[in-house]
Design a protein around this nucleic acid. Structure first.
Length: 483
DNA sequence: CACTAGGATAGTG
DNA sequence: CACTATCCTAGTG
């Protein structure tokens, strides 16, 4: 784990200011490969929708004869790793076994990793609860929704069987919505009024059968009336529809959070229309990585967000034959999740009654007011108390830059090594790097002017130096720092 | 115009 | 006090 290792050395082994001796060489041990396509996760979704048949233990989830072993992407794990630690930076020291974290990170959506998962990732930061959704091969991760709704013990139970299936009642119990409407569940209040519209997003995602094909699953019947809830004691199907609506709402919310989290990690706007070429490439690379799809040259997507949004599914398939559909479907999610769209969803209305409502209409449509709400969303999910900070605000700029450099798949379009062994790197997208830095330090006004001023301070401190032939946006770490 | 360079000063843990 | 964050002026390609 390159990033992991680097970080540990940088921020913990190293003194806070100046490292005296050289760092130990980065161990490029290849951990397990990422397997984001967890059948268990999909299983959860199916169970959510009551579409699965027998409550079979997921430990014995059906074999997928057609599922070919995922191709090797040597650095897949780094993204997920990075992702899972992003909000909780710095990473707790897993000094003893390097392998455990990546392994857990690879299937975080599976409840069978619950104990490890909890201990490693959940910690006490609510934001982290949002993150598991990323691991899902499915954009609307039910496990993510579940976790983010505060049922922490759902995944912290020491009894594995507990996770075998999700008790939908129990899950929903934690959602205040249920409290209000469970007695009159025959009445579907606002949901029915504008229901179909805002479920379009989820439904379209559900109708995307790519993952079903991949996992050799049967299509999900979307007719709510025909859905048969297992163990629905009353056998009252009328109960199902509103419950499903709520679950869908939760899933949609999770989808929004996934989008927001991706925005935070990549430093891009939630609105694809505002993406620069670099943003588009970053998003494409990230999405491919995230869904464990074959990489394609980033140049195939040398276009801005507006152009990307204009692509047809065929266009996507041409550029990325094996991944086009997924990319297209994902982009549809993002389109639907554009801030304007979310304002009109029923979800935001329901939020009015929540303790910390996000005024849906007040969010200014300007470009970067977005990523704040991914953070505040996590904060508001917290137990009303203490300040919840995302990441460490004590990180040094040079550490942060190395952090970005260590995940080239995600940030390669913003900053990358030119000469790794000599610590020479280039900032490709100064705006985005500054944005990410400002986000990390909670300095919304950060820009490249200020960031570069801080970098220049490093010249005097001997942390960085000018390259021999000075080029724009190219910097060089001094020796111990580049390791 | 975006970037480089570096002085000055304020803020914060 | 260290480490920025912010602001600013001057210079470069």
């Amino acid at each position: 784990m390159m990033w992991e290792t680097n970080f540990l050395e940088d921020s913990e082994t190293m003194p806070q200011t100046v490292p005296r001796s050289g760092c130990s060489p980065p161990s490029a041990s290849q951990g397990e490969r990422a397997v984001p396509a967890s059948p268990a996760d999909i299983h959860h979704l199916l169970r959510f929708l009551g579409a699965t048949s027998p409550p079979e233990p997921m430990l014995h989830s059906p074999p997928n004869p057609l599922t070919k072993p995922p191709p090797p992407y040597p650095e897949d794990h780094t993204i997920l790793e990075r992702l899972y630690d992003f909000e909780s930076y710095p990473t707790p020291s897993p000094s003893s076994d390097e392998g455990s974290i990546p392994t857990v990170a690879l299937q975080p959506a599976s409840p069978y990793n619950s104990q490890q998962f909890n201990s490693v990732y959940i910690k006490e930061e609510p934001n982290l609860l949002l993150v598991p959704g990323f691991a899902s091969p499915y954009p609307l991760s039910p496990s993510g929704s579940c976790a983010s709704y505060g049922s922490h013990n759902q995944y912290s139970s020491p009894v594995p069987q507990h996770d075998e299936y999700i008790d939908i009642e129990e899950l929903l119990k934690e959602n205040q919505i249920l409290q209000e409407s469970v007695q009159h569940s025959f009445i579907t209040p606002k949901i029915e009024v504008e229901g179909p519209r805002d479920h379009v997003l989820l439904r379209s995602a559900l109708e995307d059968t790519t993952f079903q094909k991949r996992l050799n699953l049967k299509p999900i019947p979307l007719e709510l009336g025909s859905v048969k809830m297992e163990e629905s004691s009353g056998g009252d199907d009328a109960l199902v529809a509103p419950d499903i609506d709520r679950v869908l709402s939760m899933a949609i919310e999770q989808s929004k959070r996934d989008v927001d989290n991706t925005c935070t990690v990549l430093g891009i706007s939630p609105d694809p229309m505002l993406w620069s070429t670099g943003d588009v490439k970053a998003w494409v690379m990230f999405t491919l990585q995230h869904f464990n799809l074959p990489m394609v040259p980033a140049e195939y997507f040398s276009m801005d967000g507006a152009a990307l949004m204009a692509l047809t599914e065929e266009d996507f398939n041409q550029r990325a034959p094996q991944a086009g559909s997924t990319l297209y479907a994902q982009l549809e999610i993002w389109k639907a999740a554009r801030p304007e769209s979310w304002r009109t969803t029923q979800w935001s209305e329901h939020q009015q009654s929540s303790p910390n409502p996000t005024p849906a209409g007040l969010q200014s449509p300007d470009d970067m007011s977005d990523d704040e709400d991914s953070e505040s969303a996590g904060t508001s999910a917290g137990a009303g108390g203490g300040k919840v900070k995302s990441g460490s605000t004590h990180i040094h700029l040079w550490q942060f830059l190395k952090e970005l450099l260590a995940s080239p798949q995600m940030h390669g379009s913003a900053i990358r090594w030119l000469d790794r062994s000599n610590g020479v790197f280039k900032i490709e997208d100064s705006v985005r790097v500054a944005r990410l830095w400002g986000k990390r330090k909670n300095r919304p006004a950060m820009n490249y002017d200020k960031l570069s001023r801080s970098i220049r301070q490093y010249y005097k401190k001997g942390i960085m130096k000018k390259t021999e032939r000075s080029q724009r946006l190219v910097y060089q770490f001094c020796h111990p720092y580049s390791l």
